[in-house]
Design a protein around this nucleic acid. Sequence first.
DNA 1: CGCTTCATGAACCATATGGTTCACTTTACG
DNA 2: CGTAAAGTGAACCATATGGTTCATGAAGCG
Lengths: 112, 112
Amino acid sequence: MVHEAILDQTFSALSDATRRSVLTRLGDGPATIGELAEPAGMTLTGMKKHVLVLENAGLVVTEKVGRSRQVRLGTERLDDAMTWISFYQRLWERRLDGLDAFFTLQKGRENE
Amino acid sequence: MVHEAILDQTFSALSDATRRSVLTRLGDGPATIGELAEPAGMTLTGMKKHVLVLENAGLVVTEKVGRSRQVRLGTERLDDAMTWISFYQRLWERRLDGLDAFFTLQKGRENE
DNA sequence: CGCTTCATGAACCATATGGTTCACTTTACG
DNA sequence: CGTAAAGTGAACCATATGGTTCATGAAGCG
């Protein structure tokens, strides 16, 4: 199981809409801090902080090239998050199939 | 696609190890605030706050029974989070298969 | 009834977060 | 060279977060 601090950082990084949109943007390829800041209507300094959060979470990798900084998608952290979620989702589904589910879910959906 | 504010709440709720362990515990069935607080070495008040965060995120459902409060796993929010992650994971994988990935990963990072 | 237990709410505290502005460095380029 | 552009760092600000203590309320029980 993944280290708790790693999950903390990953989920925390993902909990901001600006940062998620950065990841979306990076899905189309690398971008500079400026190119990320502009559509977000944010200062370079502000976006730099977001990128740092993503980088610390391992969701993004950066490299200084010339006077700008290239930002691109990182490795494997989304895997960690999804592994955790799918594990507990199985727990949750098992629960819904159990007796307690029937008991607490005021007899709505019997078969599914 | 899911509303941004919902994802904010869900990921934010998941970004705390205490809250994740609460979800783990609830995988074994409902529990009271006190039963959740004790293993966490935390006051009732503190745990109550965590439960409220999970409840606002829809990850948990509570119901007052007698003088205690039953907490159990909620519905469908883990689905939202996983849907988002798996979508962007596909983006990310596509990227790693592309030319840019080969290009940027092969040349060692000189400066930083 | 009177006491204990579980939960709750208010107040408080320290630290983290998300943003800004301003000053500065490094790089590009005419 | 001189100037503009991209980024960086420090300082600052408002609000959120994660926790506490203390006082109160409601439920159960002998």
